[in-house]
Design a protein around this nucleic acid. Structure first.
Lengths: 147, 147
DNA sequence: CCACCTTCCCCCACTTTTCCCCACTAATCA
DNA sequence: TGATTAGTGGGGAAAAGTGGGGGAAGGTGG
């Protein structure tokens, strides 16, 4: 299973390409393996990127759900509706489609953040707000019962 | 299991490398063993360094939790998002990636502090504030029921 | 059906970072 | 006082990230 850790500052070029951090590329599988991935959005305001295999598991879970209620429909419209799949180019870069770029407020500088099974791509200011120490402290308090 | 104790003053060189105190290196396992470790940050403003095995246990705990939970996501963005794994070089040093260096306010002089299962790397002034006797006194009072 | 335009992806060239290896100094211990 | 071991610093090769030119592919409108 792939594991993504750490944060990396990269830059989106004028053509909308970003290099995936080498550490992440290694986690994506063998060198010649199909480096396919699926990206979508998170309500927090960032992009979320999954190795194709991980994404497929999510899809299977959704399909296996007993009934399709309104909440699930809303959720799928969001997660699946925004999803875009692609592959790395020969230089290890991906192309971020304009709608996703806009959703996540990505300009020139973007942060890659590993969160175990997948990773995220953030606008710097948003990331700072989302992971500021105040917020983390309060969250840690709430979680402290769990581990 | 490894045990880290004590504090040591070392210096970060211009390339961002620091030597791990020899005492700590011994605790990391056999000489030829894989001297791999994972470092991340603490809201208190320092770096936290784990032997790889200890870190993995933490990750396994996190993975067992429900992944849709927003609080957990925030927490992972912080802990895992800052994490950086690496190995000691031939001289027993590690490279501290620039984002971590900046987060912890590390300049030339840094303090290593052992805290049992892992150790921390501090900016001197911050360490002084965090472990000032006033603060420790009040904390000790609150804990006094526990042991 | 054909010209045009955009999008995407390949290649190449440049810069920066990382990580080897080696050499110097300081401290420790016979 | 020599010998060993820790910590420090720097040179240089290799790798990673960045940016741009140009051709192929695919969509659009006449």
């Amino acid at each position: 299973m792939a594991f993504f850790r750490g944060r990396f500052l990269h830059s989106l070029d004028a053509k909308g390409r970003v290099a995936i951090p080498q550490r992440f590329r290694e986690s994506l599988g063998g060198e010649e393996a199909e480096l396919r991935l699926v990206m979508t959005v998170d309500p927090e305001g960032c992009l979320v990127v999954y190795p194709e295999a991980v994404w497929r598991e999510l899809e299977q879970k959704w399909e296996a759900l007993p009934q399709m209620n309104d909440e699930l429909k809303t959720y799928l419209r969001f997660m699946v509706g925004w999803a875009s799949d692609g592959a790395l180019d020969r230089q290890g870069r991906i192309l971020v489609p304009p709608p996703l770029r806009e959703y996540a407020g990505l300009e020139h500088e973007v942060w890659f953040v590993g969160v175990l099974q997948n990773f995220e791509i953030w606008n710097g200011e948003r990331l700072e707000k989302a992971t500021g120490t105040d917020r983390v402290r309060s969250v840690t308090q709430k979680l402290s019962g769990l581990f």
